[in-house]
Simulated assay, not measured.
Amino acid sequence: MILAAIPQTSTWSFSVALVMILANLFAIAVGRFAIKSPGVGPDLPVNKPGLWRNFGIPELLATASLGHILGAGMILGLSNAGVL
């Protein structure tokens, strides 16, 4: 009975990784333009192009966290639908 309630998840594959990478890139792109006060915290220790001038560690952590939440939801949904 309990095993029937556990959703079917897919094992790691290139398509699962691609979904997670695309979800993170989407979240970073949206966060780059949606964060109201960028550049308040510490800066990233790498050279960045001018477009990413005010994109620091707090922005990276926030957008990557959102990207992982979106990616996990997409992977679970797509694997439950049988696509992955």
Rank of each mutant, 00 (worst) to 15 (best):
Q8V: 08
A5T: 08
N80R: 15
V19W: 10
A17M: 14
G31V: 00
A62L: 06
P7A: 05
P38S: 13
T63Q: 04
A23H: 01
G67I: 03
P42V: 01
S13F: 02
A5K: 04
W12K: 13
D43T: 07
S37E: 14
L76N: 11
F55C: 06
L22I: 14
Q8F: 08
V40W: 12
T9D: 12
P45A: 13
P7Y: 11
G82L: 05
A34V: 10
F26H: 14
M1I: 04
A29R: 11
H68F: 13
L84M: 03
L78H: 03
N47A: 05
P49S: 03
G39I: 00
V16A: 12
L76R: 03
A27S: 10
L78N: 01
L70Y: 07
A17S: 13
M74A: 04
I57G: 13
P42Y: 15
Q8K: 14
P38H: 05
T11A: 02
I6V: 06
I6Q: 09
T9G: 15
P58A: 00
A34T: 13
R32I: 15
S37G: 15
A29L: 13
A4Q: 08
A29D: 10
E59A: 00
G82S: 04
V19E: 07
S37D: 13
Q8N: 06
V40F: 05
V16G: 08
M74T: 03
A5H: 02
V83G: 02
I28T: 06
P58K: 01
M74S: 02
W12S: 04
R32H: 03
S15M: 09
A27H: 07
K36A: 09
G71N: 04
V16M: 10
V83R: 06
A34G: 08
G67V: 07
I75P: 00
K36R: 08
L22A: 12
P58N: 01
L78Q: 05
G39P: 00
M1C: 01
F33V: 12
L18D: 03
M20R: 02
V46I: 10
N47T: 02
P42H: 13
L51C: 10
